[in-house]
Design a protein around this nucleic acid. Structure first.
Lengths: 189, 189
DNA sequence: ATTGCTTTTTGCCAAATGACAAATGATTTC
DNA sequence: GAAATCATTTGTCATTTGGCAAAAAGCAAT
C-alpha cells in the first residue's frame, strides 16, 4: 500500500485523512497468470495498481495477429482509460503475464473519490496525462528504428520484464517475428 | 473561431459568458511555412488550434535522422503538452509544414481561464486525454505493420495531409525511406 | 523558355527480416 | 522421471527494405 501512496503523492499533496479515504476503497486483487484484468468488447470497470507481477495489453490486428502493445510492471497504474472513462467497449485485452497482485478500485468508488476529495481530481489528471505521454514516448520511437535498436530500447524501458515474459510477447511488442528476435538476442551476447 | 467553439463544446458545456471569456483571450497567429510553433530545448509557451494549414512534430533520433512523429491539421489542438504543463524543455520541434493560421493562447491566459471558469478544467482534461489517446492509437499500430499497410493507415488517418507535405516527412513518419515510399505509391496505383 | 534548385522516382545491389519447418530446450503433468 | 506440451533456437530460402547514385519531374525566378 505504501508503494501506491508514494506513487500518488508524486503528483500532488494530500493530507492523512484524504489518503485514508482513498486507501479504504482499495481492494487487493490476486490475478493468476493468463487471466484478464479487462477484455476487448467489454467496458473497463476498474483501475488497478500493480504491486507484483507483469501485465500486458494486447489486441488482434486485421490479419488476426496478436499484438502486445504495452507491458505494465510493478508500481504502475493499469487501466483501459478510453473504455473506463467513456463507458465504451474496449478493443484490447489487459492480461496478467505472470501471477499478479494488484490494488484495485471499482469505477463507482473511483468516481466517488473524485467527487469528495477535491485535490484528488488534479492528481488523477496529472497521473493520466503522465501515463498517456509515457505510452506514446515509449512506443512511438519504435516505428523508426531497426529491429536490434528496438530490442535495446525495450530493454532500457522495461529492464525488469525481459525474463518474465515469453519471447513471443516481446517480439509482437517490437513488431518483429520471434525467430528474428531470437537471432538478435544471439548477436547481442 | 466558430470551429474552435464547436471543438471545445464537444467535450462539455459552457454558457455564452464563459465562451466569451475564452474567445477574448484567443489571438490569431499566422505561421509561415517552415517556421516553428515551439522548439526543442525550449519550454512550450502556448496552446494553439489549427484553423488552416498543416503542422508537424519532429525530433532527431540518436543517429541524427529527422523523424516526424505527428501531423496536425485543421481543427486540431497543437501543444507540446509535457513541456507546457511541466515547464520542462521540449525535445521536439513543432513546425508549420504549410503556411498556417492558428488560434493561440499564451500560457498565462490559459492558466487564468482554468482558474476562473470551473467547467473549463473538466473540458480541458477531457480534451487532453482524448488528444493523447489519439496519438497513441495512431502511432502505435504502425510498429507491427509492413510498409504498405503503414502507408494505407496514414492515408486513412490523415486524408487531408498527403498532398500538402513532402514525401520525406511522410516516409520518416512511417519509419521507412522515401525511396521505399515512392515505390509503395507506385504499386498502389 | 531557360536556368537552377528541390523533390520524387528509379535502378542496382546488399542487408535485414519474414515464412516455414525442424531441432533443441524447458516446463508441466501424470 | 517419462511423456507430453510448450517455448526457443536454428536452418534454409524468399521477400522486403535500405543505401547509394543517377535520372526524371516539378517549381520558382528570371
Amino acid at each position: 500500500m505504501k508503494a501506491f501512496i508514494d506513487y500518488i503523492l508524486q503528483f500532488g499533496d494530500l493530507n492523512q485523512q484524504q489518503i485514508d479515504l482513498i486507501t479504504k476503497k482499495a481492494k487487493i486483487l490476486e490475478l493468476p497468470k493468463e487471466e484478464y484484468f479487462s477484455e476487448a468488447g467489454k467496458i473497463a470497470q476498474q483501475v488497478g495498481f500493480v504491486l507484483e507481477g507483469v501485465i500486458r495489453v494486447c489486441y488482434y490486428n486485421n490479419k488476426g495477429e496478436e499484438i502486445t502493445k504495452y507491458f505494465i510492471d510493478e508500481n504502475n497504474l493499469v487501466v483501459d482509460l478510453e473504455s473506463f472513462n467513456n463507458d465504451i467497449c474496449s478493443n484490447a485485452y489487459v492480461q496478467a503475464v505472470t501471477d499478479c497482485k494488484l490494488l484495485v478500485f471499482s469505477k463507482k468508488d473511483w468516481k466517488e473519490l473524485l467527487d469528495i476529495i477535491i485535490p484528488w481530481q488534479a492528481i488523477v489528471n496529472k497521473i493520466v496525462s503522465r501515463v498517456l505521454i509515457q505510452k506514446v514516448e515509449r512506443r512511438s520511437p519504435l516505428v523508426s528504428e531497426d529491429a536490434t535498436t528496438r530490442y535495446l530500447m525495450f530493454l532500457k524501458i522495461y529492464p525488469n520484464v525481459v525474463n518474465r515474459v515469453p519471447l513471443s510477447y516481446i517480439a509482437s511488442y517490437l513488431g518483429i517475428t520471434q525467430s528474428s528476435l531470437s537471432r538478435i538476442r544471439k548477436n547481442i551476447r
